[in-house]
Amino acid sequence: MSIGKYEDLNDMQIDVLREVGNIGSGNATTALSSMVGKMIDIEVPRVEVLDFNDAINAVGGPEKVIAGILIRINGDIEGMIMFLFEQNLIALIEETFFGQAPKDIFSLSEAENSALNEMGNIMAGSYVNAIAQLAGMTIDIEVPVMTVDMLGAIMSVPAIEMGEMGDKLLFIDNNMIIDKTSIQSKMLLLPTIDSLDHLLERLGVA
């Protein structure tokens, strides 16, 4: 049976999606951790089905300034991966690549932008490969694009693209805690409703 709306997901399906998030984020976090040389803990992922405004509040509030790295995914699963990096994680990544933190995160140099996009690329690749293996699917990722701005404006992009047919957004929210508590950032997986059906079917919980 396929689900027509995100709200129709049952508890077992949500548990399975949480596990998908766990496996994906585990891989992505290992990639980040080995790049920046810091311990990274991940919390148990949350599977959220929320209306747009609640979704934005759940990830930090509309005017919070954050770096968003957007990676569209397609193939057997279509949708987006969105990394929401706090300013101190950006500083850490830039330090790793260039030996110093950027002066101003609103005017990153081309090289600094590329470093962040590359980090997003590696993490997104690790994330989707883990899911692809688990579900026996082929998932491709597109080139990452980054912006530093208000969270509400950044989250409006998946809200518009995923939410055209409804008023809710489904995302698997992974909180990363870097260096004990000092740096928190997020990665979100946002599959389209059709892809979600397909994924649940492959995992035997459709």
């Binding site: 747009f52 509309p62 509400g152 409006s156």
Partner: peptide, 23 residues
């Protein structure tokens, strides 16, 4: 005013909508 929302006020009311992106 949230996303996909509108409100009407009058007089001394102040209306705010946060973080318009492509909206």
């Amino acid at each position: 005013i949230g996303i996909s929302d509108w409100k009407v006020g009058r007089g001394d009311d102040i209306l705010v909508t946060y973080a318009l992106g492509s909206c």
